[in-house]
Computed example of a mutant assay.
Amino acid sequence: MLYPVYIHLGDKDYAHGVTVPDFPGCFSATDDWQGLPKAVQEALEVWCEGEKGDLPTPTPLEDLAANPDYQDGVWLLLDVDTDKLDTKPVRLNISLPQSLVNEIDAYAKAHGATRSGFLAQAARDAMGG
């Protein structure tokens, strides 16, 4: 899906700053234009972690371009892989030893996480993501 992305132009000393208006508070930075799509995709995936509900509908670029908050930069319509942004939880039935579940629960609680959140992050870490 094409989402408008606003780029605050960098220079030889500063990275290009990136804002995704349809995802409030989602931002990223990259030193070069080639790295921009990957940086934005990763930022959106992090932003969506733990979110519930539907993804926002992309705001028409012409509406955003008229906004005075977005001046002195450039716009890009970025094709975001929304399959990686799915925010709808899926219920799973898995079997683990009780002692491992107890350890997972204790660790997750001590780190301000839920069992599901901990297991999801452990899976991401194991897969290199």
Rank of each mutant, 00 (worst) to 15 (best):
R115N: 09
N93Y: 00
V90F: 11
K84R: 15
D13Y: 03
A123C: 05
Q98K: 03
V5Q: 13
A66W: 09
S116N: 10
G129D: 14
I104Y: 00
L85C: 12
T30H: 02
L77S: 14
A65E: 15
E62I: 01
G128R: 09
L92P: 00
F27P: 12
N67H: 13
Y107Q: 05
T30W: 03
D11P: 15
I7C: 15
T19R: 06
L78E: 10
A66H: 09
P97G: 03
V46E: 12
G112H: 14
P60Y: 09
A39M: 11
G117Q: 15
E103Y: 01
Q34M: 02
K84A: 12
V80Q: 07
S95N: 03
L76M: 12
D69K: 05
D11A: 09
G112Q: 15
Q41N: 07
L61E: 13
T59I: 03
E103H: 02
D11I: 05
P58F: 09
E51W: 02
A122F: 11
T114E: 02
G25H: 06
R115V: 10
M127V: 01
D81N: 08
W47M: 03
P89F: 09
P24W: 11
L55C: 10
L76P: 10
M1G: 14
A106T: 12
A15H: 07
L44Y: 03
A29G: 13
L92M: 13
D63H: 06
Y14M: 10
Y107S: 04
G17H: 13
D72I: 04
Y6C: 04
G128W: 00
P58Q: 03
D69E: 14
R115K: 08
V74R: 06
P60V: 11
P58S: 07
P37L: 04
V18N: 10
T57M: 06
E51F: 00
G10C: 00
K52H: 09
S28E: 06
T19D: 12
V18I: 12
P89A: 04
P37I: 07
G25T: 01
D22G: 04
P4S: 10
T114D: 08
A65Q: 14
T87D: 08
D125A: 15
I7H: 11
A122Q: 06
G128T: 04
A15V: 06
H16P: 01
N67I: 04
C26G: 10
A29V: 02
L36D: 15
D31N: 08
A106K: 13
P89Y: 14
H111M: 11
D54K: 02
P24E: 01
T19K: 02
P89K: 00
T30M: 00
W75R: 05
G25A: 10
T30Q: 12
D83V: 08
C48S: 15
G10M: 02
A66M: 15
L9I: 15
H111Y: 13
D63T: 05
E49A: 08
K88A: 14
V101I: 11
L96R: 04
L119K: 01
P24V: 00
D54L: 13
D86V: 03
K38C: 00
L76Q: 14
S28Y: 11
L61M: 06
D11W: 05
P89G: 02
V74Q: 09
M1Q: 03
